[in-house]
Design a protein around this nucleic acid. Sequence first.
DNA 1: CTTGACCCTCTAGCTAACTGGAAGGTTTAG
DNA 2: CTAAACCTTCCAGTTAGCTAGAGGGTCAAG
Lengths: 158, 158
Amino acid sequence: MLAQEGLKQIGSVAKQSGLPIKTIRYYDELGLLKTFGRTEGNYRLFNSDVFVRLRFIKRAQSLGLSLLEIKEFLEVHDRGDLPCDRIKVKLEDKLEEIEQQIQQLQILKQELKGLLSGWKTIPEHPEETICPIIEQVPSYSVSGTLTQSIPFFSTNDA
Amino acid sequence: MLAQEGLKQIGSVAKQSGLPIKTIRYYDELGLLKTFGRTEGNYRLFNSDVFVRLRFIKRAQSLGLSLLEIKEFLEVHDRGDLPCDRIKVKLEDKLEEIEQQIQQLQILKQELKGLLSGWKTIPEHPEETICPIIEQVPSYSVSGTLTQSIPFFSTNDA
DNA sequence: CTTGACCCTCTAGCTAACTGGAAGGTTTAG
DNA sequence: CTAAACCTTCCAGTTAGCTAGAGGGTCAAG
């Protein structure tokens, strides 16, 4: 029997939200959810806030934030603040990250295109290379300030 | 004492290549390296082919191929073929993958930019949202055939 | 009273590419 | 002979976000 009105067990939260039960339990374990206590039978109880929280989590996740980052925001929120300003800063960082990722991928793409456009099944060199073309050093001057080349060997001695 | 001329122990391979010993051992375990036997003391011996192989591995990795994919190529190579044609197909697939990744990231970027440009530290709504802005449904019509929206809740019942 | 749906915790596994450490064998210089 | 530097295998842990399964408790209906 449910302890109070309007409280839900994990199963119906799962159904309404479309998320697997296991996932909801997992979020709860990580401290993302703040359950509304338990029944006498030790069943988790949620009030309808949980849907707002879940939607927030999923939305933030889809924007590239990790569960731990999201947890921080939720904690700020739970202390009474709107975490908007912090979120803004994070999102600005994310934006920069994403722009860099895109740049890296563009470089890669250019490289791959270059390799593929110059492709021929090269005949000679039986032993000294594995695949001659793929081993070419990239010589791109794509567009702009890209001096950083893709590493062949990193420089750590261990 | 080294069994033969020109053979290297793992330490000097590590030094010359710049890769950690552990990594080289790991590649060997995965079957990427084909050692040149062992000493009486059970030390791995490499001939200088190993540098070609390592360079190939690192290069292919930097092009977005996994170690398992790379292993396939090396096995083809070791059976006597130049694995170029297979590599070509893989690389074409990779190219497509990368283009899709870029597209996804562009969408994300647009979204983030949209959020950040419309940003104000919104005052009201104490409880029904966590951060009002981040919870907006994205309404982008970026450029072209993007019907797929970022999922809030997926559609699996479990 | 029993069945079935629901819930609990706990442990372990998944992917990928390593990395760290324990415990111990080998080789060489002094 | 001993110490240092090198090597070996094996086991476990890292990251992130779950997911699977075992083993068992709770609850309402028939």
